[in-house]
Each structure stands twice: as structure tokens, then as C-alpha cells.
Simulated assay, not measured.
Amino acid sequence: MKLVVEERISVDEGQFGSGTNSPCSTSSPQMFTAKCKAAAAATSEAADLALREINGRQGFTTLDSVARKLQDAVRTYGTLGCATSPTAADTRKACLEPAAVIAQGFPDLRSGANLGLAGKY
């Protein structure tokens, strides 16, 4: 499980970055663009992979929670139309939280996997 998930995370993180280096970082000028939308899609796919890999396995509560939170953030980002550079201030503000979750997605998935493997759930 660790190798499959880590490989996916590493490839996507190399392409899109994470944290403040992510196009979805709330300080990034790309947060309201297709670049963040692509990073969000990659993050969602990595979360999906993690959930498939841990399906039925005990001890991965944190990874399960992180992956589901990421999926929700990606859905919210898409539903709000954040990648289309919305002009309404309330919409732009609503985009900040899901974008921040997405930006931190790869490190959070990695940490969740590591905690599970270490028996720390």
C-alpha cells in the first residue's frame, strides 16, 4: 500500500507542488485557474487510490479521514467554480478553505499513510 500511494503522491507532488508551492495555495495567483483545478483533480485521484488501497484494512483511520476530507474539498472547489476566477467576493472567500486543503493534500496523505503503517492510526 505504502509504495503504491507514495509513488502516486510523489509524481503528482513533483508536477503540482504542495503547501505554499501548490497552485492551490491561498497565496498563489493560480488558485482561481485551471492549474489549481488540475492539481485538485490529481489530489482527488491520489485520495481515491489511498481509499482503494486501505479498503477493509484496519489501522488507517487518519488516512481515511484525510482522503475523504480531500475529496470533499475538491468537490466544493468544483461546485463553487473556483477555477473559473469567480468575481463575487463571497464565492472567492468560500474558495479559500477548500483550496488550502487541496494545497496541503499530498503531505497530509503521506502523513496519514505513515501514521497507519506505524500503528498510530
Rank of each mutant, 00 (worst) to 15 (best):
Gly81Pro: 02
Lys35Gly: 11
Gly116Arg: 01
Gly14Phe: 04
Thr43Phe: 04
Gly17Gln: 09
Glu6Trp: 02
Lys120Trp: 10
Thr26Val: 15
Thr20Phe: 11
Phe32Pro: 10
Ser10Lys: 15
Gly17Ser: 09
Arg52Phe: 07
Ser65Val: 10
Gly78Ile: 00
Arg57Met: 14
Lys93Glu: 05
Glu13Trp: 08
Val4Lys: 08
Arg110His: 06
Val4Glu: 10
Ala113Met: 11
Ala88Gln: 08
Thr87Ala: 04
Gln15Glu: 14
Phe32Leu: 06
Ala47Arg: 02
Arg8Lys: 12
Lys93Ala: 14
Ala100Leu: 08
Arg68Val: 11
Ala40Leu: 10
Val4Asp: 09
Ala99Ser: 13
Leu51Pro: 03
Met1Lys: 03
Leu96Met: 09
Thr26Met: 13
Val4Pro: 04
Glu45Gln: 11
Val11Lys: 14
Ser10Arg: 15
Arg92His: 03
Ala73Phe: 00
Lys69His: 04
Asn114Asp: 12
Val66Cys: 00
Glu13Arg: 14
Thr87Lys: 01
Lys37Ala: 15
Ala103Ser: 10
Ser28Asp: 11
Ser111Thr: 13
Phe60Lys: 00
Ile54Gly: 05
Asn55Thr: 05
Asp72Arg: 08
Ala39Trp: 06
Asn21Asp: 15
Lys35Ala: 12
Ile9Asp: 06
Glu53Asp: 07
Ala94Pro: 04
Ser10Glu: 15
Ala100Val: 10
Thr20Lys: 14
Ala99Lys: 00
Cys82Ala: 02
Gly17Leu: 05
Asp72Cys: 02
Tyr121Lys: 09
Val11Tyr: 11
Asp108Leu: 01
Ala94Lys: 10
Gln58Phe: 15
Gly112Glu: 03
Phe60Ile: 01
Asp72Glu: 10
Thr79Met: 00
Ser65Trp: 00
Glu6Asn: 06
Glu7His: 13
Thr43Gly: 13
Ala42Asn: 09
Tyr121Asp: 15
Phe16Asn: 10
Leu96Ala: 08
Cys24Lys: 04
Leu49Phe: 05
Ser85Val: 04
Lys37Gln: 14
Lys2Ile: 08
Gly19Met: 04
Ser85Gln: 07
Ser27Thr: 15
Cys95Asn: 01
Tyr77Cys: 03
Asp90Cys: 02
Glu7Gln: 12
Lys69Ala: 07
Met31Trp: 11
Ser27Trp: 13
